[in-house]
Amino acid sequence: MSKILKYELKRQIFNKFFIGLLAINGLYAWYTLTSDIIAGTAYTAPFSGWSFGTYLSTVMPIISLTILFMMSRYFSKKEKQVQVITSATPVDPIRFMLTRCTAITVGFILIITVLLIISAYFYISFFKYYNFTAFLLPIIYTLIPSYVFILGLGILAGRVHQGLFYVLMLVSLALCFVHISGAFDFFGRGYYNNYPITLPVSAGGEPAFSVSDKFLLARLAYLLLGLGMLTVSIQSVKRKARRDSLRI
């Protein structure tokens, strides 16, 4: 499987489109930091947990777009033609699917790493700020549930119809412009912008980074939903593999 993983990584990451998309993500991240985050979120410092959460939730739609773009390759017409051959190999289709998920996850981690490095450079160069441990919670709350949900939804949508990817891409793009507030805000931008205003300020004049239980539950729900969709996809692959083997 490691050979397949290497091949998938080479296919997904070592190509000009991924590098191009990585560059777009980087540029967008820098633009977000210097145009939006620099002003601070909800009257807090640009280097507060709230502002960093806003940064992540602002770049997340573009990251999702990139992830969907990567996934769309696995469900393209060409790929379906090749599937006739790959399904004839002795590779376990579930493990094959999970390997591909791993390749996409590696791509995601790579993008996130670049974006975190950019943000670190921004905070150091503009504010001489080094306390990056304060950003750990926003990273966990913002990135993981959204990513797992997008991954699950993408794989499920791809199995249903390839055209759904384009719908998801459009939705993701639209979320760059639409600001939803409340705990169930998928990327969390509206929440990070509005919730701190309702909190009491601490001695430093700013509310400490502490999300509500409702928001935590919503993030957990997105995470579980994503895992659930992945499980459904695995089950469907399992059923298909069984059907194919019965046919043979």
Partner: peptide, 15 residues
């Protein structure tokens, strides 16, 4: 409540 109002020392660091 604004951050830069409370901390004008950071204002000069902005573009």
């Amino acid at each position: 409540r604004g951050f830069y109002y409370r901390h004008p020392e950071y204002l000069e660091k902005l573009p």
